[in-house]
């Protein structure tokens, strides 16, 4: 896969509006993250790896679909780095590529249950597909 040929750290910084150099690597974001155990890379690692240009690993990781967008990392960050925005930028960079939608309308019927609110479907489609 040649993802990093097209997506650079600068792209992610531009899309997210995040300045990873503000991070002091205290790990409070990852200490706050409710999805920590589900994620291969954790919020502080997204910041550190973008800083170091290790984009390919992040784009290939399922961690980008495990972020709940709960904004706990963003709220509690002492340096206003906003890791959630960076994770979203990586996800967006992946799903904007041809054929990279993580979830499509065809996947929905099997996921439906009686109580599932429209909000869940719209949210998931917005998060997981173009």
């Amino acid at each position: 896969m040649s993802l990093t040929n097209t997506v650079t750290a600068e792209d992610l910084i531009r899309i997210s509006g995040v300045d990873p150099s503000k991070c002091m690597q205290c790990g409070k974001c990852s200490g706050a993250c409710p999805s920590y155990d589900e994620m291969e890379y954790h919020p502080h690692q997204f910041v550190a790896m973008v800083r170091k240009g290790q984009i390919e690993k992040l784009m290939a990781s399922d961690a980008i679909y495990q972020c709940l967008s709960c904004f706990a990392c963003l709220e509690r960050c002492p340096r206003n780095v906003e890791p959630a925005k960076l994770i979203e930028a990586v996800r967006v960079a992946v799903i904007r590529q041809q054929g990279m939608n993580h979830m499509t309308a065809n996947d929905i019927p099997e996921k439906l249950d009686e109580k599932l609110p429209q909000q869940a479907i719209v949210s998931a489609m917005r998060k997981y597909s173009k």
Binding site: Q66, L68, C70, M103, L116, A120, A124
Partner: peptide, 19 residues
Amino acid sequence: NECCGGYIAMEDKGAAQKR
């Protein structure tokens, strides 16, 4: 004020159940 799992229920039911 901690997350219920949100839309992750569509992707990973187990993760939502844990939350």
